[in-house]
Design a protein around this nucleic acid. Sequence first.
DNA 1: TTGTATGCGTTATCAA
DNA 2: TTGATAACGCATACAA
Lengths: 363, 363
Amino acid sequence: MTAPAGSVNAIAYDCKMPRPTLRDVAEAAGVHAATVSRALNPATQSQVKPATARRVLKAAKTLGYRPNPIARSLKTSRSGTVGMVIPDIANPVFPPMVRGLESILEPHGYNCWVVSTDNDATREAELIAGLQGNHVDGFVLATARVDDPLLEKLHDEEAKIVLVNRRTSNQPILSVVADDVTGISLAVAHLKKLGHQRIAHLAGPQNTSTGQARSAAFRHAVRDHGLSDDPRLVIECGDWREAFGAEALRTLLSRDVNFTAIVAGNDLIALGCYDVFRETGLRCPDDISVIGFNDMMFMDKVQPPLTSVRVPHRQVGAEAGRLLVGMLNGEIDDARSVLLPVELVVRDSTAPPHGSGRPELQS
Amino acid sequence: MTAPAGSVNAIAYDCKMPRPTLRDVAEAAGVHAATVSRALNPATQSQVKPATARRVLKAAKTLGYRPNPIARSLKTSRSGTVGMVIPDIANPVFPPMVRGLESILEPHGYNCWVVSTDNDATREAELIAGLQGNHVDGFVLATARVDDPLLEKLHDEEAKIVLVNRRTSNQPILSVVADDVTGISLAVAHLKKLGHQRIAHLAGPQNTSTGQARSAAFRHAVRDHGLSDDPRLVIECGDWREAFGAEALRTLLSRDVNFTAIVAGNDLIALGCYDVFRETGLRCPDDISVIGFNDMMFMDKVQPPLTSVRVPHRQVGAEAGRLLVGMLNGEIDDARSVLLPVELVVRDSTAPPHGSGRPELQS
DNA sequence: TTGTATGCGTTATCAA
DNA sequence: TTGATAACGCATACAA
C-alpha cells in the first residue's frame, strides 16, 4: 500500500548502480540518515553511541559508501580542495612547487587543483572565478603582479591566499619567496671574483616582484662591489621565457657597450642567451659568462652546464602548503612572509673574462 | 507587516556579501527563479519571452550573478570539468599535453582538473575516486597500464575515457598515441645507415603499452635490418626516469657484450645514459650513440644535443580533447584509436661507430 | 510563456 | 543519543 520509503538506489537492479547515498547506508543500518552523517564524520562521531556507530560503519563499508563531495560542499561551502594558480605549466620551476604543496596538503586531507593561466590576465580571472565557484578553501598563487587588482579583489573577499615565487605590494598577504637579494649578490660576487668588471643584467618583467627584486639587487650588488653600473648594461625582458631573453640579448649586443658576463633574471632567459650565442658564434664562457636563476631541472645537462642560483622550489610549495593549512585551521592570521635560502651552483657557464666579450663585433 | 520574501542576500548590508543566487536575480528582475534559470541557460532560453530574458540578463549582470557550479553539479550530475590524470607532473612530456587538451576543452566550455599520481596505484585510485566524486564529466588518462583493473572498473562504470600516451589491452577504450613502431624503426634505420651493427635497447617498463610497443618494434626493426638481435642487448628499465636508465646502462655495461649504439625507451632514459657516460668516461657519440624518444623540451640544449623521435605532445592532448568532447556530446561512441605521426630529429648524439663502444673496458 | 513543486546528497538545528 | 526537518543553489517535470 505505502510507497517504498527507501531511496531508489536500494531497489535498483541494473548493473550500473548509482553510488550509495547516506540514506542507503541509513536504511541498511536501520538508523536515520542524520545518524549516519554523524557516525561517519570524525568531528561528530562522539555524539553517537559506539554500538550504532559500529553498525553504521559496517553498513557503509559493505555498501561501498563514499560521501559525495559536491553535496557536502553545497551544504558546507567548503570543498577540501585548494586551487594552485601558475602562470605557465610548461615552465619547469612550477612542477616541483606543486609536488611540494601536495605533499603537505594530502596528509591534511586537502586536494589540490592546478590551473595554468598562460600569463593571460583574463584567463586568470576566469580560472580563479571558476575555482571560487567550486568552493576551493584557499589559493596558492604563483601569478601575483606587483599591482594586481585581481589579487586585491580576492583579498577583499577574505579568501585564504598564499603567494609563492612572487609577492604583491601594499597588501598584507602571506608569501613564500626565495632570497632573491642574496642570490643575485652571490652571482655578482662570483663573477667579480672571476675578474669580470662589466656585467650585464637581463632582468625579468618589472611588473613582478621577483623581476623588481632581482634587478634592484643587481644594481646594489654591482655598486657594492665597485663594478660598472652603466645603465645600458641592464635590459628588461618582456617575459620570463627563452625567446624574450634572446631578444633582450640581441638588443644589448646591438648597443655599443662592452660586457663580459650576464646575470640573467632566470634560467630560461639564460637559455635564450645560449640561442643567441649559437646564432652569433659567441662562445660561453670563453667570450661571455652567464649565470641563471632557479637552477631548474636539466640545467646541469645543457651545454655549457649553467651556473645558477638554486631555489628550493619543492620547499617553496611545501612551505606554502603549511601556511595555507595553518590559515584554514585558524592557527595563522598574520601576514607573515617566508624567505627561503638560496645557493649558487657553479658550473661551466662562468669563467674568467678573456676580452670584451664581443670579439667579432670589435673588428 | 509581511516578512521579507527575498533571500537574505538581497538585504545584506555588510561588505562581505555572499554571491547572489538565482533567487536574488529573480527578485531583481521581478520574475520567478525558474524563469531566470531558463533565461540564463542557452538550451532553454527559447522557452522564455525575449523581453523577460533581456530583463533577467540585465539583472544578472548588474548583480554580478555567477551560477554556482556546485549546486548545478549536484542537480545535473555534470560539472563541466574533465579530469586529466598523469603519472608525474615533473616529467616534461605532460605539460604540453595538458595545454593541448585545455586548448580544445576551453572553447567547448569545459575545464580541466590535472592530478599527478606519482606512479602510485593507490594514490591514483584515490585521485580518480576524488574526481568521480566531484562529478567530472570525463577522464583523460596518461597512466594506463597494460593490465589495469582501475581502468577496467572505470570503464565498467561507463565513464567517458580517453587514454593518451599509453593504451590498455582488451578494452575498447579510445586512445591517442604516437606511432611508436615507426619511431623506433626510424631510429634503428638511422643507426644502421651510420654503420652500427650491434644496437642496444633500454626499454621502458613493460607493464605499459608504450614500453611494450617500443621494445617489440625494436626487436622487429633490428631483424628487418639484419642487425644483431642478441637478447642481451635489450634491458628493461624499472621506470621511465633518468635514474632507472642509468641503472639499466650500468647493468648492460657489466655484461660482457658489445654494442655501439643505444635506442632508449624515452628521453629521460637517454639522459640517464649521459650520466653513466660521465661516470665512466665514455664519450657520446664517439664511443656510443644514443637516440631518445619524445624529443621533449631542452633536448636540443643538452650535451650532446640528443637525437630523438619527436612526438607531437601538444597535438596528443588536443586530439584527446576532441575525442572526449565528441563522446560527451554523444557524437562518438566507438572506441577509435588515433595514431599520431612522429619524426626523427637528428642531432649530435648519433655518429658512425668507431669501435666496440666500450674502449676502456676492452683492455 | 511563466510559476509551482520537488529533489540532487549532505549537514545542521531543532525536538524528542 | 537519535530522529525529523530544513536548507545549501539549481534544474526540471508539471501545472497553470
